[in-house]
Design a protein around this nucleic acid. Structure first.
Lengths: 167, 167
DNA sequence: GGCATAATGTTTACACGGAAATGATTTACA
DNA sequence: TGTAAATCATTTCCGTGTAAACATTATGCC
């Protein structure tokens, strides 16, 4: 029927970024579905496998979300029995998140992101991949600089454990 | 307090993509908030400014979402008075979305994406920007190829109006 | 010690995205 | 012609993300 040919999309970096990210996310979700895990849950698990007992705020900082989002994902992970919340003895505001046996049972997914990386970078040379990482970090920095008068986000940059890590 | 230094994030393309996209989206949302528009709403408006009366399915295809998502965003846009739903005379299944006067009043935001582009690409040469677009499309294609047995998405690729910018 | 302030986590309200199911309509074809 | 299949839009359910308000607890400063 296609009376009209599809409307052309303007050449927009945001658009290409969004599409690539959505496709990547969909691929990850599909791969993780076999283990009844969402991508957001895997990200948190992969952090806890390396450092058990992280605070909710640390997890939020790690994943790049704000605390409410992290808190809710932890809710679901706790319902599924992947983690438990343990109130801290010293600081009574603090909640430490611990992996359960069941959560440890998925530790074979530790290198999931590496398999995804190779999948995504197929047909792209190592040099080009480096360029891609560098440019994406630059775009990220440009966007953050232009946001919120640049102020309150100071601590939330994409930490440069690649570009020229000034850390 | 930082008893622990923040946990290192692994070098994952998905992670960098997600962060760059989130930062870009946040920047757009902040810029559009002055006009009481969300990014998703602007994307649809920018399509309708060029082709009024698109079908919901065409809009969904244009934005890269599924129909339910598009339908809901159109709901909110209709509530805000930006668009109206008009049942089609010939095909009674179809709903055409039309911009209202109020929606046309925002047409000065037509080139919003171009301003975002320049903002995001600051400090990046034209050649590097081309490389970035090319690599992102490659990553997108790689992800889609690995998803859903590659079948049903046939029509939803990132249309290559950029092979080499034929615009 | 006592009080203002900050930090931590949660809840609520809103916007967005995907999958599946449903209703209505159109098309295909037998 | 008449029924099955395809198409279009919507609804519902779930997961995620942001912002704002809130309760609880720590901290700092007098």
């Amino acid at each position: 029927m296609a009376t009209n040919k599809p409307l052309e999309r303007p050449k927009s970096l945001g658009q290409v970024l969004t599409f690539a990210t959505a496709a990547t996310g969909a691929m990850c979700q599909e791969l993780l579905a076999a283990h009844d895990l969402t991508l957001a849950q895997w990200v948190i698990l992969s952090a806890l496998w390396r450092r058990d007992g992280m605070l909710v705020s640390e997890i939020a900082d790690y994943t790049g979300n704000n605390a409410p989002a992290a808190s809710r994902i932890i809710d679901r992970m706790a319902e599924r029995g992947l983690v438990t919340r343990v109130p801290d003895g010293e600081d009574k505001r603090v909640v430490r998140v611990h992996v359960t046996e069941m959560g440890l049972g998925l530790k074979h997914l530790e290198d999931f992101h590496e398999r995804v990386n190779t999948q995504l970078l197929e047909g792209i040379s190592a040099e080009e991949a480096d360029t891609l990482f560098r440019l994406l970090r630059q775009v990220d920095a440009n966007a953050r600089r232009a946001t919120g008068s640049g102020a309150e986000m100071a601590g939330k940059q994409l930490r440069g454990q690649a570009g020229e890590g000034n850390e």
